[in-house]
């Protein structure tokens, strides 16, 4: 199938699309502000994937390689809108994490929705660090920010997520 895609065979490309599009849609949804943006990123990602598939040399997981393309496509969209990042004031944060027991009460769709509702900068760093497994160094290099900022954004993202999930689950507990 990969060889067929290298030859730009339409049927192989469609097979690959059907195989990975749903997973990659999740990636796009996590980074995008809304579903329309996610669909744009998905489309851009697949176009970029098929145009560059000959660069895949068979080293490492193919899904991992594809995922990186979609993360990069998402980041490109994010970077175009990075002026949206705004925060002000003096904040104190403890190195706190989201309560694991609360997470289990949410569906995957709800978790994704909560991640998507994070402010732009938080969302990107949270996704890159927690889901994709980038280090703060890699994040700082990719986004052009310093490592300390990346750590701060992650902490804020966790805090934000904690508050939102707690608020969301409270009515169920009562």
């Amino acid at each position: 199938m990969i060889e067929g895609c290298v030859r730009q065979d339409a049927s192989c490309q469609k097979q690959l699309f059907l195989l990975y599009s749903r997973k990659m849609m999740t990636v796009c949804l996590r980074y995008a502000r809304n579903r329309a943006d996610a669909e744009d990123i998905l489309q851009d990602g697949f176009v970029r994937l098929f145009q560059n598939i000959k660069q895949y040399k068979g080293k490492g997981s193919f899904e991992g390689w594809i995922r990186r393309i979609f993360v990069n496509a998402s980041l490109k969209k994010y970077q175009a809108k990075k002026w949206n990042m705004e925060q002000s004031g003096l904040d104190y944060h403890q190195n706190e994490a989201v309560d694991a027991t609360v997470i289990s009460s949410l569906s995957e769709k709800e978790i994704i929705e909560q991640i998507r509702q994070l402010p732009e900068g938080y969302r990107v760093v949270f996704n890159m660090y927690v889901i994709e497994g980038y280090s703060h160094k890699e994040i700082s290099e990719t986004l052009g920010i310093n490592e300390a900022t990346s750590r701060t954004q992650l902490l804020k993202a966790r805090k934000h997520l904690q508050n939102k999930i707690t608020t969301m689950t409270m009515p169920h507990e009562s």
């Binding site: 997973k23 849609m25 994490a97 694991a100 997470i103 994704i112």
Partner: peptide
């Protein structure tokens, strides 16, 4: 941490509608 791992394991391979 535990919550991060839980989030990651649950949505890393989750499939959304296209």
């Amino acid at each position: 941490d535990g919550a991060d791992r839980d989030i990651r394991s649950r949505i890393y391979s989750y499939e959304s509608d296209v």
